[in-house]
Each structure stands twice: as structure tokens, then as C-alpha cells.
Write a protein that binds this DNA or RNA. Structure first.
Lengths: 299, 299
DNA sequence: GGGCCATTGTGCGAAAACCTCACAGATGGC
DNA sequence: GCCATCTGTGAGGTTTTCGCACAATGGCCC
């Protein structure tokens, strides 16, 4: 007669983090626990629901179809909870940086300790959103978009990293030799936050792809990438987001990457910038220069 | 750098249950814990978010505005989680009863032990939904609606309780002597699941109300009633749902109740009913007869 | 093919979170 | 004023969860 026979909520939280990261270690970092704790929680959740949520070899885990569905529901649910929470009187001081969730997870957060080490006196508060930039709420925003796009009036844009992108997929999904036709025949994965990615790639690569057998759309970049890792199809992956997954072999990019039309850009209000903002912007430029470009360069 | 600085999830679950019930004791029953556990969890949640979520004297608690908002977000979030969970291979045996959430909470669940005592050999599994009836999934459905409405072809309807309804509100909200004009001047609360309630009441009472100063709509019946208890306005309350709140003084119904156009009805597939279905239907009829009608009878 | 790297699985003891029990405090009705 | 109905809380026990350290697994490279 229990109205909500839900699994333990902490296990759901752990699994949700795993779902976004695709790896226990980074999910554990996010939750400030050890990877062992996440491992147990995910395992216990699987026991509870009686369905496999993850599969694959231990060093290349992927979500199952059921796991992907659950993880997406959980992300949506937790977002909803966050929205419903009353805002505390904001006494967050320091540099307010607004960034897209996937960019934060895949690129910025791993590098942030470097900035903190270099400038321990400059507190940084990250705010993750896909919404438009509001300089009443933020000091510096990072956006990925065509040059000059989405930059509000009175703002200054500082590109700090080239936006390469290319089709990525699970290692083993493409059977024979890599070819454009073979890739085009796979289910194609899309994301709501950057819908024109495939069209842009076709333009830059000088190719017109035939219609894919299946199109599938995701709310978030990271779930599209997890779906790709799970072998559900081929996604258009920005280099900065998939670099790590390529390095460890969770994804492959058989056609390489092409120069995107856009650059990844730091956006600041025009005019006299405070020292923390300048420091952070310059640090971004330096980090961008240090991020290696993709090795294969084109179709 | 934690991505989700959420309050403890168990506290959120406890508060969500409180939000639906409006009382710690019944919320605790739902969660299979003691009222003390719920009390602590809610308190700790308030400390965490730094905002009062409940207020009022201890025996007539109500949600604050912030609490109402949070509770609704949480209900939606938990519903989402439930939907995302993989369905376990259904080996639930016994009588499958489909019922609207508020009717379950306010009327059926408190009486269900009586049925279990009388027929311990008939397992009952409750399924709460506002959706249409699907007899592939259910053996008996309970619906509140105008006679003949929403009853699928090939089904049989057994009304078992009269549907009285009347305007209800927090005790103290109406200042002077109760009058139709005074009630009409209050903010009016509505629910998505039974939108024509006010119009029906006006018809039955032979009154045409002027437009209210404010209209406010809720996704769920129970949140509309909690909003009424919190003093946010006047709701059209079905007798069966508000009986308990009237008895303990959380709500008052200064204009009494009128006979609704509808009856509360058990819906079964036409034709030979199994013994459990017959038993349960007959029990509903008996319980309906035992539920006292409202005392004041009309405007 | 053997060693190395990155990652996840697990036994054990410690720590934290949570709950129950029992009773006190509050409020309103009669 | 007394009773009935709820909620608040102190003390103590139980369950859950975690960290630590190490084992296990699979892939990659030379």
C-alpha cells in the first residue's frame, strides 16, 4: 500500500551522476565520494529494479537502453527539484561564470583546479545553464556558437578555442572499413541544444549525407554522447567534449574532425573588466591554446 | 564545485508526502515510518533551505507559499522518476483497482484495512492514475464524473456514493458573516483534473457568481486543497475529499454542500465478474452508504 | 605476449544518517 | 477544565553508507 515504492533515492542520485558522466570515477568526484561508493549504489539500484542498467567491460562501461531512459528521467527530475527549491539569499561572492553543462563537465571542471592553484584569492562560482546570457547574474559566460551568434549587445567576445567537430560512435559499431557511406547508414543522434551540428559539419566537410535510417534526439549533449558510447548510433561530437572518451577508447571518430564554423568563446560585458574577470579570461585563452587539436583533420 | 547541491533526498521525500497529505501522521503512514521521523526530516529540510516551508499551529499545519511550490515540484519530479523506472515483470496477482490519487488518499486508503480484514484472501493492488480506464490493466476503476461520462463502451457503472460539493477554505479567511458575495470575492482555486467543478456548482446551487479577483489552477486535487487550507483562496471541494479536513478544522465550508450532478462510481467490465471484483464492488457500496452525508445542505 | 595503465569490484571497520519509543507541548472542542 | 488530536524532541539503537586498501579486469603498447 506504499504509494511510492521508489528505490533508495541516494542510489538514484548516484546513478544519475553516472549517467551523465558515463564513468564512475568522475561521477564520484562530482558527489564528493569515492568511486567505490558509486559502484555499490549503482549495483544496489540494479538489484532493486531487477534490470541491468549498465553493461560492458569494467573499464568501458555503457548504459543499457533501460539505463539511458532512467538516467534521462532522473536528470529531468532533479532539475525540476532544483527549480522548485526556494532561492537562498544570494551571498555568493566572487567570479560568477556561466557555462553549458556539458562543457563544464567535459572540459572546464577538470581544468579548474589549475586556475584555483594559480589564483587562490579569486573564488569562482560556476553556474550551469543553456539559457541566454544575463550580465546581471554573471560576470563571464562561455558559449559555443557561430561567431557573432548569441552575443548580446554591449558584450565582448573572446574566442579561446577552435570548435572542431566530427562523427563519433562506439568502437565496433562500424563494421568494415570506415567510409562516409558506412557512417551515413547508421542511426544519427541529435541534441536539442545544438541542433544544426550535422548540417554545419556537412557544409564544412563539403558532403551531403543521405537521410539516416533513424534520427534520435536528446535533451542534453552528454546523453547523446552516452547513447553513442552505448552503440545506439553516430553523434556529431565537438572535439573538446569527446577528447577524453576518444583517448580511453569509449568512442571512435573514424572520419576525423573538421574545423567548425564557430569558436568557443568567452563573453564578457564590454568595458572595464575587473581583475578576476581578466584573469579568468586570460586563463581560458591559455588553456585553450594548451588543449591539443584533433589529430586526424578531415574527412 | 558540486553540480547538484541538493538537500538530502530523504528529507525531500518526506516533505513531498507531507505536502500531499497536509498532515505528518498520514504522510508517515504512507512512508511506513513514525510521525516523529517525518517531523525531523521536514525540520531538517527547512534548516537546509533556510526558508519556512510549513507554518501554523501544530495541529493545523499548512504549507507556506514556498512550501507549496516546492511540494508541487517534488511531486512532479517523483512522478517522473516513477515513469522512468523500468517496469518489473508484473507478477502482481489479485484485484487490480484503478483510482484517482486524491480519492485514494482521502477516502479509499483509510477504509481499505476494513476490506482486508473482511477478506484477507483477496489481495488488492491499488493503481493511482487520472488517465482513462483500460480494462486490460485493471479489474475495477473508480471515477468521479457526471453520470455516464468517461465510461468506456462495454463497461458497467455502479454508483456507490453521492458526489456532494461545496466551496471550502481556511477557517479565518472569510471575515464577516458567510455570504455568497463574500465567498465570490475570494481568490478562486481550480484543478486541472476536474475543471468544470465551479460551473457545476453554480448550476446546482442556482447561482451565477461574479468573476473572482484571482484564478489559480493546480495540477492535483490535493494541492488545491492544501492551498485552500493555507488560506490562498476558496476551492470547490468534494465532500468525500474534505470530510476529514472539515472535521479537524483545517477547512470550513460556510455555504455547505450541494448535490453534485455526478456520483462516485465503480466501473467494471460488463459481464461475468470474478468473485473478488464482486466482493470489492459490494464493499464499496456498503462503505459509500456508511459515509455520512454533509450536514449543511445547500447554499 | 608481458607489463603497464586506467578503471571498477569488494571486505572490513568506522561514521553518519535515520528511526523508534516514549513522553511533553499545543491547540481547539465540548 | 478536561479530553482528543497532532506535532516536537531527547535518548538510544539500527541501518545505511562510506572510505580505505587491495584485487580484478580489459585494453594497449612495445
Amino acid at each position: 500500500m506504499a504509494r511510492r515504492p521508489l528505490p533508495p533515492l541516494n542510489a538514484l542520485r548516484a546513478f544519475e551522476a553516472f549517467g551523465r558522466h558515463g564513468r564512475m570515477t568522475t561521477a564520484a568526484d562530482e558527489l564528493f565520494v569515492t568511486h567505490g561508493a558509486v559502484s555499490r549504489q549503482v549495483r544496489s539500484l540494479e538489484d532493486q529494479v531487477g534490470v541491468r542498467l549498465i553493461e560492458g567491460p569494467k573499464n568501458r562501461l555503457r548504459l543499457t537502453e533501460a539505463g539511458l531512459k532512467l538516467a534521462q528521467s532522473l536528470t529531468q527530475a532533479f532539475d525540476l527539484v532544483e527549480q522548485g527549491l526556494p532561492k537562498r539569499p544570494d551571498k555568493v561572492e566572487g567570479l560568477r561564470v556561466t557555462v553549458q553543462p556539458t562543457f563544464a563537465m567535459k572540459w572546464l571542471i577538470p581544468r579548474l583546479p589549475d586556475f584555483v592553484d594559480a589564483h587562490p584569492d579569486v573564488p569562482v562560482s560556476l553556474h550551469e545553464t543553456n539559457g541566454p546570457v544575463d550580465f546581471a547574474e554573471t560576470d563571464l559566460a562561455i558559449r559555443l556558437g557561430a561567431a557573432g551568434t548569441g552575443i548580446p549587445a554591449g558584450a565582448e567576445a573572446t574566442p579561446f578555442m577552435q570548435h572542431y567537430q566530427g562523427p563519433v560512435m562506439a568502437p565496433g559499431l562500424l563494421k568494415g572499413a570506415p567510409s562516409i557511406d558506412a557512417v551515413a547508414a547508421l542511426p544519427r543522434l541529435h541534441t536539442k541544444t545544438f541542433a544544426p551540428a550535422w548540417a554545419e559539419w556537412e557544409r564544412r566537410a563539403g558532403i551531403a549525407l543521405p537521410r539516416p535510417p533513424v534520427d534520435r534526439e536528446f535533451d542534453h549533449y552528454f546523453y547523446m554522447l552516452e547513447a553513442a558510447a552505448a552503440g545506439l548510433g553516430v553523434a556529431m561530437g565537438p572535439w573538446a567534449f569527446v577528447q577524453r572518451d576518444l583517448a580511453v577508447g569509449r568512442l571512435v571518430a573514424p572520419l576525423g574532425f573538421v574545423d567548425g564554423e564557430a569558436q568557443i568563446t568567452a563573453i564578457t560585458p564590454r568595458g572595464g573588466l575587473s581583475r578576476p574577470v581578466r584573469l579568468f579570461r586570460d586563463w581560458l585563452v591559455a588553456q585553450g591554446a594548451q588543449t591539443p587539436p584533433p589529430t586526424g583533420e578531415g574527412v
